[in-house]
Structure formats: C-alpha cells, structure tokens
Simulated scan of single mutants.
Amino acid sequence: MYIAHTIAALRDHLSAFKRPAFVPTMGNLHDGHIALITQAKPLGDVTVASIFVNRLQFLPHEDFDTYPRTWESDCAKLRDAGCDVLFAPDEKALYPEPQTCKVHPDPALADLLEGHFRPGFFIGVCTVVMKLFTCVQPRVAVFGKKDYQQLMMIRHMVRQFALPIEIVGSETFRADDGLALSSRNGYLSETERAEAVQLSKALKAMAAAVQSGERDLAAIEAKAMQTLVQRGWQPDYLVLRRRTDLQAPSFGLHGEPLVALAAARLGSTRLIDNLEIEAPAA
C-alpha cells in the first residue's frame, strides 16, 4: 500500500490510473470502514482511502483533540483489506493556509437534524470532502449510510457542482446485537455498550409502528423519545422523515419511502443511527 502525505505525492502516484475509487475516513477504523473498502475495490482501477481528522467539522466543545487516532492499526487494516493507496495529510498539507473558502450547503438540508444540533457541521464536512475530491479526483466514492444526512449532503453537492463522481451509499455495518458500528463506540463503558443497542431498537419500534398502520407520526416519535429518556439517554431527536429531502411528510404517509433517524447521548457519548422504512400504502 502506497502512503502519500502530501497532495503532490498523491497526484503523482495516481496519475497512472483512470478510475480511482475513494473512501474518505477520519481513521480509528472498524469493520464498517473495511466494508467500504471492500465495496470500493471492484468499482475502480485503484482503491484509495484517506485518513484525516477534520478540525472544521468539530464544534469548539467537541472531541477534536481527543478523537481516537490509531495510525498503526489503521494501516494494518487497510493493507489487509487490499487498499492500494492511503492519503494521510497533516493539517498543514491539506490546509496550508486558513481555509477561508468553504462550501456552504443548502440550508434546507444542512440546517436540520444534525445541522441543527451541530451548527456549521456540514460546512466543515462539505468543505473537506470537496478538497479531498480535488486531491484524489475519484470517479467513484463510497460513503456509509449510517451518516444518512451526510450522504444526502454529499450527493447534493456533487450534483450541484456537476462533479464527475459517482457516489455510492453502503449499508450500515452493525454488530451482532444491532448496534451501528462507529468510531465513537470506543468511548462507551461496558455497561453503556450493553445499553447502546436500545438506539437501534427504538428505530425498529418506530418502523414497526409505521408498518402496522399507525399514522400519528408525532406520537410515534414522542413514544420513542420517552422510551430512551426513561432509560437514562439524552436524545437530540428521533424522527420520521421523507427519504427524498428529510422533511416531515406533509399529508400523512401516503406510501412514500421514509427513514427513521436518531441522535442521542448515552453518558458522554453521542450516537447516531437510522433505519429506512417502506411505508404501507395509504
């Protein structure tokens, strides 16, 4: 596996290839990341991963400085997965001067849910992804569906800027008990890890309510929130939204595809998850 620490070295190495397949990460890799690499490999003539902890998407009170950095383990996992190229710039390499030019995504999508609770988050995400795209110049890029709103945001950005990149969404990789794999799961204590599965269970309960014919979405959401609060969680949101734009359905369900999305804090760890739902016909 070739490791590039500068943009120039990366571009020079990739000049021999025509269809890079790209998986951007912030490191601290787990089986979910490796599944993305596996999915990306047959989609291009070279498989590229990046590791970069992006300061721009962390709020001042969040965990940028303490975010797990596991370089040796990450490199070993990528090599074992057959990754061809790792782009691992430091901040000075990717941001040689203050990044004053930033991508400001559509507020209609960027300012709700994660964007509401983490103001400016998607500006940071879109800015770093755009910059990584210009460095790697991929023809296909693979993102996990666990970050559902982020995936929608990246697709919207690529479409708006007419970037020649196919965005592939990869299904959420889960532990045997249903917990969505996340780098932040490592923050959980043993007791919290056992409890963490309740987030995916809450989403399944919401989906079951919709599929059984319940139409009061607010009541379904309120019940899910109450269930987690009673178990000691601090939820930011548990909502049912249209998959097309993450807006609340306007006139009931009417058979449109929905997604249940959740973000909640367990102890000091904030977890997110989602579940796509096929709504029954009205």
Rank of each mutant, 00 (worst) to 15 (best):
I34S: 00
D84Y: 13
A263I: 00
P60R: 11
T66R: 15
A281K: 15
L56N: 12
A35P: 06
A282R: 11
Y67V: 04
T172K: 05
L246C: 00
E114P: 09
G252V: 02
G144P: 15
A88S: 15
A219D: 04
G186Y: 07
V210K: 14
L261C: 00
G144L: 10
Q247A: 00
L36G: 00
V259F: 03
S182F: 05
M130H: 13
M152D: 00
F143H: 12
R69V: 12
I34R: 00
M153T: 09
W233S: 00
F133D: 01
H5C: 02
G144D: 13
N28F: 05
A35W: 07
L266K: 03
A16H: 11
M153G: 06
V197S: 11
A279L: 02
L238F: 04
M225T: 14
D84R: 10
F58A: 01
R242N: 02
Q160M: 12
W71E: 13
T100H: 14
V142L: 14
A248V: 10
D12H: 14
L109G: 02
A21K: 03
E171C: 08
E276D: 01
F117L: 04
A162P: 15
L228Y: 05
D80M: 08
Q137L: 09
V142R: 02
A16K: 11
S182N: 09
L199M: 14
S15A: 11
C126M: 13
Y148D: 05
G82E: 15
M206Q: 14
G169N: 07
M153D: 13
D65Y: 04
T38E: 10
S189G: 13
S15V: 08
Q99P: 15
L188S: 07
V197Q: 05
E97V: 14
A262F: 05
P42A: 05
D245M: 06
A93Y: 06
A88V: 15
K102F: 08
L261A: 00
P107V: 09
L275W: 05
A21S: 07
K201W: 13
G186R: 11
G213R: 08
T100E: 13
R184L: 05
L86C: 07
R215Y: 12
M153Q: 10
E276L: 04
E276Q: 03
A196K: 12
V85C: 10
M26W: 13
T47A: 07
E97Q: 14
R174F: 10
N274H: 05
K146V: 15
Q230N: 05
R243Q: 04
I154N: 08
M157W: 10
E166L: 09
E256C: 01
P107Y: 10
S183Q: 05
A222F: 09
K146A: 07
P60K: 10
D176H: 13
R270D: 06
A76G: 12
Q57T: 09
F22P: 06
R241T: 10
T127S: 12
D236W: 08
V158Q: 03
